[in-house]
Structure formats: C-alpha cells, structure tokens
Amino acid sequence: MIKKIKIAFFSLLSLAVVSSAYADLTFVSWGGAYTAAQQKGYINNWSGKVNVENYNGGLGEVKAQVESGNVTWDVVDILPDQGVTGCDEGLFVKLDQSEFIDDMIAGPVSECVAPQIFWAYTAFYSKSAFPGKKPKTIKDFFDVKKFPGKRAIHTWANATIEMALVADGVKKKDVYKVMSTQEGIDRAFAKLDTIKDHVIFWSAGAKPLEMISSGEAVMALAYNGRIGAAILTDGKDFDYIWDATVLEQEYLAIPRGSKNEAEARKFVAYASSPESLAGVTKHITYAPMRKSALKVVQKGEPWFHNGVDVLPHVPTSKKIIKKAIIADPMWWADNGAEVSERFGAWKGN
C-alpha cells in the first residue's frame, strides 16, 4: 500500500518536473484587434503553449514584478520609450539582435528589444463630410477656416506636437531638431492654440472612429490599424491624410527574471522573423519593421486576410513613408514628462 502511494507520489512529482520544463509562456500585449492579429499571425503556429494576457502599457507592472522578484510575464509587447527606459533600468534582458539589426527600417531603440511593427497616428475623415474639396495635408487638418468642424485628438501629447510643427511649416526631417528647443515647443503649442476651440479629446482607440461615423467630429487622429480595419473590413467611406503621419515603433522584450527565459528568447526570435511580422500585417494594417517582411507582403498581395491589397494601407509602404515622420523615442524619453504636463495644462485651460 505504502509502496503504491510512493510510486504515485514520485510519478506525480516527475510529471510536475516535466511539465514545468515545458511551462507555458506568458505573452503580454495590448489586447483587441492588434493582439488578435499577433495570435493569428504567428502565436498560433508556435510549437509551445502561449498564454496571452492584456495590459494597458507602461512599465509600471514590469517594474513592480522585477523589483519584487516575482516575474510572471515572459514576453512583453512594448513601446520604444519603454524599450529605452526599461533597458536602462535593467527591467529587460539584452537580446541577440544580429539576425535583424541590418534589416530594420528604424531602430532598434535599445539592446533589449526585438522588432514587431510600426503603428501610426494618422489623420482621417469621412468622405461624406467633405463633398467638395477634401483635406489632403496636415495643414488642412489645422485649418478650421477651410475645413470647419470639430477635430478629435487623443488626450496625450505624442504625435500631436510633431504634426502641429509640420502644419506650421517645419520640414519633416527637422521636426525633432525644432522640438529640442524651447521656442520649438512654444511654436507647436501656438499652432495647437489655433484649433483649441475646435478640439474634442478621446482616450480609447475606438472612439475617434465612432466620432467620425456619428459626425461628432469631421476629422480625427487615430491609430492607422483602426482606420484600416474600418475601411477594409467594415467598408466605411473613410480616407487617410497620410501627410505627417507619425510612425511609432512597437517591440518585444523579455523582463529580467522571467522563469522561462530560454524559451522566451526562442519565441522572441520566432516572433520577430519576417514571416511572423508579415503574418501580423495579414490581419491588421500595421507595418512590419523589417524590410524583408515588407517584401513578403508585397509578394503575397493581395495579402490581407479577406483578399484585398494591403500595401496602400500600410504606413511603411513606399509611397506613404515619404510623407511620414518616424517618432523619436529618445526625444520622448527625455522630454515626454515635461511636454505631457504642458499638454495637460494646455488642455485644461
């Protein structure tokens, strides 16, 4: 009898050891359509099991986990300034970047990150709102005389500052140079002042699309993937203003102290392969960060999952990237807090 119990005990124990060797990876991303695209694009084809969790961004949770020594996340989908700060503060482990470092359109921002996608703050409108002349440039977005009506913008400062400067006549390549001076920031806020009375604010990504659909606003800034989905799958009559669209980078990183670090490293290499990145673009119109992945998309057109060409909606495609600004995460890491406070003050007044 006791022998039997012993056998059962040891077999259970060995089972536990084996299963912990093949422990599930915890992959943390933003949820919604983007994470769904990641799942369909590559996670589902991964050999191991992956638990997908959602979070609201920021480094707060990662910092708390690393500092307490109880790290439950294995791979985190992060923004570039988190990639910078998190790497600086030792919240993330360094990665082998040799595979992709020469294949990237921009970045990587630090030694701790692997490429994922570009997403963009893009201005857009409903064609029906402007039956005559249609807005084409960011100047038009800031011109409430020529194109009257409410503008919907997000409650934080990113991209809006850059766009305001371009609308005020700054060349795209000089934007961050101008922004690095006090006068440059003043200039951006002065430009923002011109539309202040015509602005409504959103903080959840679905809102700008609703606002345009309902006529609450005539033009809005939104995440380009949302606009793409509205046009490609919902058949909305929206159109982009690609001028001065601000591209933001999106990376993967592994928190220091992950319990499955080796497995996580393999997964991150897989997740940042050209095929995986192109796989994401199959389901959402965010842009792969690797040139080779863009080629995969180009060859595969019509690449979008419902059989339409996707490149006209992808902000790194040849025609669009010329009009775009690639956001400088270093500038935002340096100045983000200060500009945000100022933006908050500007909003409230």
Partner: peptide
C-alpha cells in the same frame, strides 16, 4: 475616458507617472 479636455483629476496624473514616466 470621458474627461477629455478639462475633466481629468489627480488620479490620472498619478497613473501617468506610475506607468509612463516611471
């Protein structure tokens, strides 16, 4: 979510510095 331009409170700034600027 609904505060928009002038409806944000001190809790929002606490959250901002907790998550974004660290």
């Amino acid at each position: 979510l609904v505060g928009g331009k002038d409806g944000q409170m001190i809790g929002n700034w606490i959250g901002y510095h907790l998550k974004t600027t660290l």
